[in-house]
């Protein structure tokens, strides 16, 4: 098994990085990195950490080739080596993380999640209306891991603020059962991407075939999160098994309309990626463009009302003109 951290990975260009991931089962996880400069989206660190923890748990070896890039300190500061139990030999003077990044976190239960959310908010140094969606996204994604992933190592979370683009980038990864196995408890998707598309559809959850969900799952969580990225005209991606769905930046000249079918979004999706045993979610939120969270809720409410009208319409009997 081998992961190479290239020069630059962000959600827009993450596809080649994922495709280069060698998933061949071996007793060693080899991690290498670009020699001169490495700049990666937090979701990449979450993935490396998730797979590393899994390998550790299975008693396998992690071989992290000594990074030579000038930016190697980033891995150390984000806590990658520490979490994986590796000696990096990189000495750094830790600068204050507040307002800049959230180091890699391994969250295994609700108590840890509550504590993390409480501690994270002041770190973001943002106005409440900007903090709101970030808190919401992290909470819901980590809860998804607890409820659907059956992950022995919990959820691996990482986030970083990019001053130049005024963007928060968030990554959550796990090495649990994956979306297909989870959704297959109630549906029969043939492929991983089919399962992902089902999971993104509002009203569909792996816990029941009943549209609207159960007393504890409405099947709306991922739809809400994807909608946040869509309204904000940002990237969102979900990768599980061999499937990857990526919501592309909604063009600025186009209005934003929420749709139930994720295929109808401005998105790319495929089922030919290396098999990731678990689920990975990455999202960007540009704080400049940031639409009011309440405005998003209005759009979602409007979406449900239209869906209701459509349903009522479908029930009408229509005259047959011959």
């Amino acid at each position: 098994m081998r992961i190479h951290l290239p020069n630059s990975v962000w959600l827009g260009n993450i596809d080649p990085f994922l495709r280069a991931f060698d998933v061949l089962e071996t007793d060693v996880l080899e991690i290498s990195s670009h020699q001169k400069w490495v700049s990666v989206h937090p979701v990449v660190l979450s993935m490396v950490c998730a797979i590393g923890l899994k390998m550790r748990r299975e008693g396998k070896e992690i071989k992290f080739y000594k990074p030579t890039a000038i930016s190697k300190h980033y891995f150390e500061r984000m806590g990658l080596f520490k979490i994986l139990g590796l000696e990096s030999e990189i000495k750094i003077r830790e600068h204050e993380s507040a307002g800049r990044f959230v180091t890699i976190q391994v969250i295994k239960d609700s108590k840890q999640l509550d504590r993390f959310i409480t501690e994270m908010v002041p770190l973001l140094h943002s106005e409440p209306k900007k903090v709101e969606p970030i808190r919401y996204i992290i909470f819901e994604l980590v809860r998804n891991v607890f409820e659907h992933a059956n992950s022995d190592d919990g959820a691996i979370v990482c986030a970083q603020y990019y001053k130049k683009s005024n963007t928060i980038r968030i990554g959550v990864a796990d090495c649990g059962i994956g979306v297909k196995k989870s959704i297959s408890q109630s549906y029969s998707p043939k492929t991983d991407i089919e399962a992902i598309l089902l999971a993104l559809t509002p009203g569909i959850t792996g816990t029941t075939t009943k549209i609207g969900g159960t007393e504890s799952n409405a099947g709306a969580g991922l739809f809400f999160i994807k909608s946040l990225a869509k309204v904000d005209r940002d990237f969102f991606m979900i990768y599980s098994g061999e499937g990857m769905y990526k919501l592309l930046k909604n063009p600025k000249h186009k209005g934003v309309r929420l749709v139930a079918d994720p295929i109808k979004d401005h998105a790319s999706y495929n089922n030919n990626y290396p098999d990731w045993s678990g689920t990975v979610v990455g999202i960007d939120l540009c704080l400049d463009e940031h639409a009011d969270f309440n405005a998003l809720l209005d759009l979602i409410r409007d979406f449900y009302q239209k869906a209701r009208k459509q349903k009522i319409k479908e029930k009408y009997k229509h005259p047959r003109f011959v």
Binding site: G203, G212, A218, I300, R301
Partner: peptide
């Protein structure tokens, strides 16, 4: 409001 509305749509 969203939750109460979609609950009514799904006929519970």
């Amino acid at each position: 409001s969203i939750v109460t509305e979609y609950m009514q749509e799904s006929n519970y």
